[in-house]
Nucleic acid binder design. Structure first.
Length: 436
RNA sequence: GCCGUCCUAGCUCAGUUGGUGGAGCACUCGGCUGUUAACCGAGCGGUCGCCGGUUCGAGUCCGGCGGACGGCGCCA
């Protein structure tokens, strides 16, 4: 698949090619030159390595090329790997052939960068060590989601991205011209998933979700990836336990495969390991309100959703993610059923991450009561006719079922300790930015 | 929708009471055979976001507009 005659930097740093003559290829990450010596830090997908180019050890014209090549020039090098404690990482390549594939123009990103500038140059900034590490972890996270559900008997099931109706709240849809009509970008996979469980029973999906919310915060994207599951015969307790298992499994996979990346990002590996190996508590909305009142002196009126600040204060008292169940029914979407034992609350839950990363999972049992759902939709001013096919699901062999959605970027942000969710996705789309 | 901060060289920023716009980095040239965000010397580099106003004179004061970023609400 790849040319094995070229060695990777990670292997060099692990000592595999010591004193060997090797071929390497990559890009110039940093370069500084003396009169007759050039120090280049070269970069490939696996890491960075110092290469020393000394005049006399290679043809003169190749030395001159090495001297004038700017940052991000692509190149092929031949030379010997030497252990040398003067080199960062302890190893360096002593070059005897330098072939510059393309002399890069002046790279616009230098030492001082503002977030806005880096966002404008996102197509170049994704080469940075930080984003390289984040996207390696993101790859592990998404891979872990697939393997978690597949090994637990779930089928991957895909829903259309273009959807004629909405699921929750009307004002947050992206409208799309669809021939002579209009349709909307997917806000959730859920309604289609609810149709599919009558065939496959246990399903999941990872895919893009679009919300035209006018949220300008470090936790919101207009286009983000949601990992959703839906299954027949599950109750609220089952759902919360699966969600906990899933998040712990993802964490363990990241800890297994991405130690270097977590270090690059200055994440606390011990803390994450502790979280991955401990149980996540489940509390009710009522208990959350008590904690806020008793320990934070914050009075939240019963019936109000927990706001960002309240979630953060609540999480001061936990060092793992927690599940909060039984939010007030009134503020919940039409498909969430009331708890028969506590009819003013819904059979729903959120998972909150520590350290202010907020809601990473949201889910619920789904109502099987057709009239109840119709009434809730009418109260919210929705046109019931749009949901006719969905209501069919309650007319033909309806069963108890439920599901949840996990925000991939929210999870990645927390695991990578990112300041802004925009760095958890390669090319972020927000209220004000849809380019590059 | 509401609130706040910011906008000066390619980048990051300084700019005093209103009086001929600066630094560092990047880049170019010169020097240096072990640098670690290399260093030393020189050079190149400007529609001070836009429009209007006050003033002899505006980067600076006033008004409007635009853009970016963040917070709240809402959500994953």
């Amino acid at each position: 698949m790849t040319d094995e005659s070229y060695v990777k930097i990670k292997d060099v740093l692990n000592g595999y090619h010591k004193d060997k003559e090797v071929k390497m290829r990559g890009w110039i990450h940093r370069t500084r030159s003396g009169g007759k010596i050039v120090f280049m830090v070269i970069r490939d997908a696996t890491g960075t390595l110092q290469a020393t180019v000394k005049k006399g050890n290679l043809p003169d014209e190749e030395f001159e090329d090495a001297k004038k090549a700017l940052v991000e020039s692509s190149l092929i090098l031949k030379g010997t790997i030497a252990e040398d404690n003067r080199a960062p990482g302890g190893y360096e390549l002593r070059v005897d052939h330098c072939n510059i594939l393309q002399f890069a123009e002046v790279f616009p990103i230098v030492e001082d960068q503002s977030p806005e500038f880096l966002m404008d140059k996102r197509h170049l900034w994704i080469r940075s060590q930080k984003l390289n590490a984040v996207f390696k972890i993101r790859s592990t996270v998404v891979g872990a989601i697939h393997s978690f559900f597949r090994t637990n008997g779930f089928y991957e099931f895909d829903a259309p991205v273009l959807q004629p109706n909405q699921c929750e709240g009307g004002s947050t849809l992206f409208e799309v011209k669809y021939y002579e009509n209009k349709t909307y970008l997917s806000q959730t996979w859920q309604l289609y998933a609810e149709a599919a469980i009558f065939s496959l029973e246990k399903i999941y999906n990872v895919g893009p979700t679009f919300r035209a919310e006018k949220s300008k915060t470090s936790r919101h994207l207009s286009e983000f990836w949601m990992a959703e599951m839906e299954a027949a015969w599950l109750n609220l307790h089952d759902l919360t336990e699966i969600a906990k298992d899933e998040v712990k499994y993802i964490l363990k996979e990241v800890l297994k495969h991405n130690q270097n990346e977590l270090e690059t990002l200055n994440q606390d590996i011990e803390k994450l390991t502790h979280i991955a190996n401990n149980s996540f508590p489940t509390i009710s909305y009522d208990e959350a309100l008590s904690i806020l009142k008793d320990k934070e002196n914050m009075n939240v009126e019963w019936g109000k959703d927990l706001r960002t600040i309240e979630e953060a204060k609540l999480m001061n008292h936990f060092d793992t993610p927690i599940i909060v169940t039984h939010y007030p029914l009134e503020i919940m979407a039409f498909y969430k059923p009331a708890d028969p034992d506590r009819p003013d609350t819904a059979l729903c839950f959120d998972m909150l991450a520590p350290d202010g990363y907020g809601e990473i999972v949201g889910g619920s049992e789904r109502s099987t009561d057709l009239e109840y759902m119709k009434n809730r939709l009418r109260e919210q001013g929705e046109n019931i006719e749009n949901y006719d096919w969905y209501f069919d699901l309650r007319r033909f062999g309806s069963v108890p079922h439920g599901g949840y959605g996990l925000g991939v970027e929210r999870l990645v942000s927390w695991i990578c300790k990112l300041e802004n969710i925009k760095d958890a996705i390669p090319f972020p789309r927000t209220l004000t930015r849809f380019s590059p």
